[in-house]
Design a protein around this nucleic acid. Structure first.
Lengths: 210, 210
DNA sequence: ATGAAACATGAATCATAATTCATATTCCTG
DNA sequence: CAGGAATATGAATTATGATTCATGTTTCAT
């Protein structure tokens, strides 16, 4: 909201969009430090100086993009969840995962931008995940009250879930350069719901370790 | 193994150690790009040029450290697991988590170094997690054969577990600047073992989603 | 003890890349 | 359609920081 100087004409809007698109692309491929302003402006087909009509400096685009992408993703997840308001927590989790992967597919940049942001601006990085966590915690608490979910620390679980999403994304999109299929999502949801252990003799093992 | 030119005298060994310690500290606080060679040599109390007696360039220390730390961590986990060779998979997982957190506490650098490495050298980054995953997969398969663990894709689960560890570390060590206690580890292990859902009516919900 | 190999030094070099700015062009309201 | 506001330009400035290198010191095997 302060990272960017918003344009006042149609032309300005187009230019800003071009710069943002170019920046998102380059940051996600090469990272923050390896991306030069010159690269961005070149890809956006504008002069170097034009960049500075919209952003005070390099970090600003980066943080602006992160903010925007995070906002869009949270919105997309919220929307998708609201389409199935009566679904159980675990079904909502399936929806979240699906939307998350879909979003990462569209905006591959987000993922790498967020991870790198901790070295660009630690506060923004923290804020990003805290916002996400907060949304999760709300849902988890609700599900705990309804008796669906057990009495874990919701914050802890929210980070565990985010960790699962992030690392599966890493494995599929980054390492394998493919994308998760529905069978994979099924497994993940099942894992989150019931854990990795065989279902037999379940109570036993659980008690013995407390 | 190629990142560093190993010293041939006692003095050289001491110097290399001083440089590595300084680098690990600075990289973990400020990250790769914000750390200058000059900072490292200053903290190590050696001249700037001395650095280049041991490393061909800046990325080399970084990747060397990552390699060493990764090796140490895997070794520590393997050792701890072997002390309880008859423990169940899930108890082994408890041990791994505990050792992981302990290691991060001692070498906070590792965590941030690894995360940033994807923008320094993507291959090293990938290799780091693949090595870790491989260890996990071995254990998971064993536990699947013994019937303890269900028939998930072991690779998928290995990344899910690493994600949980990493993000809980992030939350505790980085965001809260505290450290996970034993109660937290209990919850994590319980979550991994049995999932988040209430234990009642377990089979039902599970079937309906397949 | 000696001298060739190792190691240490830090000022100087060199390359890179963020940012500025004076000027030119385009927009759009009245 | 006039003219002030917006926007565009890209060469020049400036800062930064990695890397080199010629020179001096220390190590240690013989």
């Amino acid at each position: 909201m302060d990272y960017v100087k918003l344009p006042k004409t149609k032309r300005g809007e187009i230019t800003l969009k071009k710069i943002c698109d170019a920046a998102e692309h380059l940051f996600s491929i090469n990272g923050f430090y390896a991306t030069e302003i010159h690269d961005i402006t070149q890809r956006a087909q504008v002069a170097t100086g034009t960049f500075y009509n919209y952003f005070p400096d390099k970090s600003s685009v980066f943080l602006y993009l992160m903010d925007e992408l995070g906002r869009k993703l949270r919105y997309a997840i919220r929307q998708a969840r609201q389409e199935m308001p009566d679904a159980s927590m675990i079904e909502q989790e399936r929806i979240s995962i699906r939307v998350f992967f879909l979003f990462v597919k569209e905006h591959f940049g987000l993922f790498r931008i967020v991870w790198q942001s901790q070295f660009v601006d630690a506060e923004s990085f923290k804020r990003y995940y805290e916002r996400f966590s907060a949304g999760y915690v709300r849902e988890i608490k609700k599900a705990q009250q309804s008796g669906e979910v057990r009495d874990f620390d919701p914050v802890l679980i929210s980070y565990a879930l985010m960790g699962i999403h992030s690392f599966v994304t890493l494995k599929c999109f980054v390492f394998d350069e493919s994308e998760p299929d529905e069978a994979m999502i099924d497994q993940l949801v099942d894992f989150v719901a019931h854990g990795i252990l065989q279902k037999t003799r379940r109570g036993d093992e659980y008690e013995q370790n407390q």
